[in-house]
Computed example of a mutant assay.
Amino acid sequence: MDKQRPIVAFLYDFDKTLCTTDMEDYAFIPRLGMTPREFWSKANGFGHANRMDGILAYMYTMIRESEQRDLPFTRESLREMGRDIVLFPGVREWFGRINAFGDSQGVQVEHYIISSGLREIIEGSAISGEFKEIYASEFYYDGAGKPVWPKLTVNFTAKTQFVYRINKGVLDVSDDKTLNDSMPDDSKRVPFTNMVYMGDGLSDVPCMKMMRAYGGQAIAVYQESNRVGVEDLLAKGRVDFIFPADYSEGTALDQTVKNIIRKMAIADRLWNENVQQLRTIGGDVLPDQVGLF
């Protein structure tokens, strides 16, 4: 890891974190002639009746309902639906501004998605190019672009594996061997202490708890509709900060994130100074000194 240019990684949920509702609600469900309540009730009911993982249940329901109505359901049709996503205020400008601030503090900022939604829809959104990697549920497609099998599913607890992938720099989901290989803490690409997870509710709690346990930061954003639930997360010590879902420059969210980047940049410089002093006197850098600050 380049100690002259430490990495600060922002990990985001997508639905109701960067956009205003579930991504399927914008274009996919209206094309079925259903309301979101009707679709999700059917998908969840199917899952419960068949003792099926909820993510697999909604992916299957998407295919089934589209086929019953003879509607196109391909990789490209899903990407087109991403154009209808409505982002929270300031989201489009957020990434460039935070990247530039990181540069001013001597750190490299990276952005990742960890979502139970569909990768294909996210890829069609206006911000898809901002992310180093998008981890989201995804179909495997045949030569005609039609889904034939789930390629990846990201349920709430499975989200945590992708935090470890980012930590070690093993981003290829097919590479489990390297992910599980032993690796010294000081050789990991992004220390947990340099991570910020941003979500909106209970589905993000496993990742938020990881952040708090390993020295990263957890932030929950809210709309009025979920404000009480997010306040409960703060009261129970499951997140570090909560803010309205407004990413505009000068908001409390913007200012706090910049303070977090400052803190992480300073901690990294102090760590390097400590290591240099130890090496100067011939001392060893002990495992428990990694991430000391």
Rank of each mutant, 00 (worst) to 15 (best):
residue 186 D to F: 04
residue 209 K to G: 00
residue 175 D to E: 07
residue 195 M to V: 09
residue 161 Q to M: 13
residue 204 D to Y: 13
residue 190 V to K: 01
residue 163 V to H: 14
residue 176 D to V: 04
residue 189 R to M: 14
residue 169 G to T: 09
residue 200 D to Y: 05
residue 200 D to N: 12
residue 181 D to S: 06
residue 189 R to Y: 11
residue 185 D to L: 11
residue 147 P to Y: 11
residue 199 G to L: 02
residue 182 S to V: 13
residue 200 D to Q: 05
residue 173 V to T: 03
residue 195 M to Y: 02
residue 191 P to K: 09
residue 170 V to M: 03
residue 205 V to N: 01
residue 170 V to S: 10
residue 177 K to T: 15
residue 195 M to D: 06
residue 195 M to T: 01
residue 159 K to F: 03
residue 153 T to I: 05
residue 150 P to R: 04
residue 194 N to W: 05
residue 206 P to V: 09
residue 147 P to Q: 05
residue 178 T to L: 13
residue 164 Y to F: 09
residue 189 R to C: 13
residue 195 M to A: 02
residue 197 Y to M: 10
residue 158 A to M: 11
residue 187 S to L: 15
residue 204 D to M: 14
residue 162 F to C: 08
residue 186 D to A: 00
residue 183 M to R: 14
residue 201 G to R: 04
residue 187 S to I: 10
residue 162 F to W: 10
residue 200 D to G: 09
residue 191 P to M: 09
residue 193 T to A: 07
residue 159 K to L: 11
residue 167 N to K: 11
residue 148 V to G: 12
residue 159 K to C: 09
residue 183 M to L: 15
residue 150 P to H: 04
residue 204 D to A: 14
residue 185 D to A: 11
residue 164 Y to E: 08
residue 176 D to Q: 04
residue 200 D to R: 04
residue 159 K to W: 07
residue 168 K to G: 05
residue 155 N to D: 10
residue 156 F to R: 12
residue 172 D to K: 08
residue 202 L to P: 07
residue 203 S to W: 07
residue 192 F to M: 00
residue 199 G to R: 00
residue 172 D to C: 08
residue 201 G to D: 01
residue 176 D to F: 03
residue 175 D to T: 03
residue 202 L to V: 12
residue 161 Q to N: 12
residue 188 K to N: 10
residue 195 M to I: 03
residue 185 D to H: 07
residue 163 V to D: 11
residue 181 D to N: 12
residue 189 R to W: 13
residue 198 M to A: 13
residue 208 M to R: 12
residue 176 D to G: 03
residue 163 V to Y: 15
residue 182 S to W: 14
residue 167 N to D: 13
residue 206 P to N: 10
residue 158 A to Q: 13
residue 165 R to V: 06
